[in-house]
Design a protein around this nucleic acid. Structure first.
Lengths: 350, 350
DNA sequence: CTGAAAGCGCTAACAG
DNA sequence: CTGTTAGCGCTTTCAG
């Protein structure tokens, strides 16, 4: 074997350089560096040393091609520049970084369009070993396609019944929030909600409202549909919706906003009308956004970063157990994220 | 040549399947599908058709290995779950999606640690064709290493003098904000700022404050260092800092917050102290965060999503012009993002 | 425990 | 305009 001269450090060294410099075969280098068994400790140490000296790292493209795995995953989100999604991505990113996986972010254009979800998945096909769908609704047909493609999938926010998922109990969230208001003595409770994007499969607002309805029913109160306003999950939407509610002659003494951001809008709306929070209006949100802390907003906290992290971990675990010949058959296991009531100053007795 | 039988649609078809099905060589398929010249129109059409039928798409790993390019870029950010960074990423993502580039997100742990930046770059080495460093300070040594590595780089927020960058004129931003306050008649102006992370190379707060200082100097006023408080660019930090300023016997009649989020904290602080905005205190921020709109916060708007998009476009353009044998030598061209004063209700005459 | 050799699926000369 | 033929740099049997 002809010794390949080691390249200057600023050039890319290949496995061959390492092999010849260490006086072993490329196969051994490959094994040694990946921590595979059947490598003499002395050999492994030497190889690692040489690799470090040469600043060698396996070319991902080559190793992907040869191994059939990419050590990369994708998070598919409707958008990234929103509090919720960017936090989920942050959680996933941290886990990936830890395990040396690449993280691609992809936005699924309009999740209303069936084709787009599949198109996104197709385009990600061989570039990643698996994907996390965050609040992207997968229909049974989609799941079927994904299964045929033999892809690693984890969902956040939806239960496909097939893939692992991390979710929160949205009905319970609604109930927690409203029970808190009821306990304080509120009877006329308004809700800042939103239209379900895909009512059949994916109705976060509907579930939270359902929880609210049940809590009220338990207290012998009927939820007045007139007191449910659309806030679109945005600050501005929440502002407008709250304004509408507060302009009513029989305005509510408390408002349950399905998200903190809508609650912020409500805070401003109250101020606009000269109403004090909590003096004239109690307000409770969901999320525990940073601003909620400063604002003193009572809220039902969810641990969003953790959702992303748990999803990523589930996916990576699954990938780890994978062989080229297929995924281990695992039914969708579900991790339900914790939620807790965080009482601050925005709620009190009416 | 033996005709390879077309695989069932749910299996991965290779370029060979397409070639034999279309009755041409793999080279022709490759050319046709990538829109290269020297392919008869009829041939191209046929190949495209067959490829579509077989649901074929080139394996990225294989094509990366063969071509030496990955059609992927990375955005390196200090964190993704903050308003600013998630918006930059959103802009970059949109451009990448448009051009069929993969987008990896990587967080550069503590940008205070020199090694980390290089380590991040190294680890991204062959996985991407280029990277966008967002508010990650690159020292001359780092730049040197990156140049040796022959990597496509674009920066957001810093001018390396070597790579294209997109920035905003932070001195001007400070000046715009304070001129506005001065024009209204304010004389005692407080500032919610922050410590520079890397004073020598990267001092956004320092620059904005410098702009403020100059604007005041032009009006014959000396900036009182006592009126500059640290808000750490967070809502909570802004809250605490504002509280400190407002507790002073000679409290300012106006506050310039270096970011909207700090301004939000100030709004709450004012409310805590029973001070009205703008009645007792004028407030101006920077960014034009969604919440600023609802809150009616006067601010100096910057177009953050666009920053990410422009950076990505600059990078992709540069990559497009690239050959395997090296980057075209281009000195750092600079795109300066627009900023404009957005007057809302939080500022008025003292 | 280690080496040789056969690809992984594609791109890029180089001939025709 | 099209086909042939080397690789790209690694992983993975299969022998030793």
């Amino acid at each position: 074997m002809v010794a390949t001269s080691p390249p200057p450090t600023f050039e890319r060294s290949t496995i061959e350089h390492v092999a010849s410099a260490a006086g072993v075969s490329v196969a051994t280098v490959s094994r040694a560096l990946r921590g595979l068994p059947n490598v003499a400790t002395a050999t492994r140490v030497r190889v690692e040393e040489v690799a470090r000296e040469l600043n060698y790292r396996a070319d991902p493209a080559a190793s992907r091609l040869a191994a059939g795995r990419s050590r990369a995953i994708a998070v598919v989100v409707p958008m990234i520049n929103s509090w919720y999604f960017s936090n989920v991505v942050a959680g996933a990113e941290a886990v990936c970084a830890e395990d040396g996986y690449d993280l691609l972010v992809a936005t699924a254009p309009h999740s209303t369009s069936r084709d787009d979800v599949i198109a996104t998945a197709e385009s990600l096909q061989r570039r990643v070993d698996g994907m996390i769908f965050v609040e992207v609704s997968l229909q049974p047909e989609d799941v079927e396609v994904l299964q045929r493609r033999n892809l690693g999938v984890v969902t956040v926010g939806q239960d496909t019944g097939v893939y692992p998922s991390v979710r929160i109990d949205n009905v319970e969230i609604g109930a927690i929030a409203v029970r808190h208001l009821l306990a304080l003595g509120h009877r006329r409770i308004g809700i800042l909600g939103a239209q379900a994007e895909d009512p059949a499969w994916f109705d976060v607002p509907g579930q939270r409202i359902e929880g609210a309805r049940r809590a009220m029913a338990d207290a012998g109160i009927v939820l007045d549909p007139e007191l449910v306003a659309e806030g679109e999950f945005t600050v501005e939407g929440g502002h407008d919706a709250a304004l509408a509610l507060l302009h009513r002659p029989d305005r509510p003494t408390a408002i349950f906003a399905l998200s903190d951001e809508m609650a912020f809008g409500a805070v401003v709306a109250a101020r606009d009308l000269g109403l004090g929070v909590p003096d004239d209006l109690s307000l409770i949100g969901v999320d525990d956004h940073e601003v909620a802390q400063v604002l003193g907003l009572t809220t039902v906290r969810q641990h969003v970063v953790e959702h992303g992290a748990v999803a990523a971990r589930a996916l990576l675990r699954r990938l780890g157990a994978t062989r080229r010949d297929g995924w281990p058959i695992t039914n969708g296991t579900i991790a339900v994220g914790a939620t807790e009531l965080k009482i601050r100053g925005s709620t009190r007795v009416p």
